[in-house]
């Protein structure tokens, strides 16, 4: 009996892990982001676009050389975020925050959102508030 039980378990595991006929298809590729690099931006929220197909965080930061820079950070859509503890009021113009991103590969000031630390210390990820979800954050 034992081998049979093991076989059933293996099959269940295989069915769970394997063989979706198509990937969970992303809205776009991540070819433009440098997924090997993580950058933390500290600055002031200029705008939080609560829009499809992505939310966009626009943040004013001061570069190392003292010059002002505007960065645009792409996040998941309101549809996804609203089901995980976010709202259009999570970020507001004037808020002092730090945002962790994967930057664009080139010199443009943009990136893919990973997390934000609000002024009160709350850390928000796309999967919701703290602590970080196990495994990779879905990033379609």
């Amino acid at each position: 009996m034992k081998p049979f039980v093991i076989r059933v378990g293996s099959r269940a595991l295989w069915l769970t892990l394997a063989a979706l006929p198509a990937a969970a298809v992303a809205h776009h590729s991540y070819a433009m982001f440098d997924l090997s690099r993580t950058v933390t931006l500290q600055g002031t929220i200029k705008d939080f676009q609560w829009t499809n197909p992505h939310s966009w965080i626009w943040i004013d930061v001061t570069a190392a050389d003292g010059k002002p820079e505007q960065w645009g950070i792409e996040g998941m859509s309101p549809n996804y975020l609203a089901r995980r503890g976010w709202s259009k009021h999570t970020l507001n113009p004037g808020d002092k925050v730090s945002v962790v991103i994967h930057p664009l590969k080139g010199a443009d000031h943009g990136g893919s959102f990973l997390s934000v630390t609000l002024a009160d210390g709350t850390v928000m990820r796309q999967s919701g508030g703290p602590p970080p979800a196990s495994g990779p954050t879905p990033n379609p």
């Binding site: 809205h27 776009h28 197909p53 645009g72």
Partner: peptide, 17 residues
């Protein structure tokens, strides 16, 4: 998800990709 509703998804709204 018994407490969810389908939301609007207008991909062209602010598509920067």
């Amino acid at each position: 998800h018994r407490d969810w509703d389908i939301a609007e998804y207008i991909c062209e709204q602010n598509n920067r990709n």
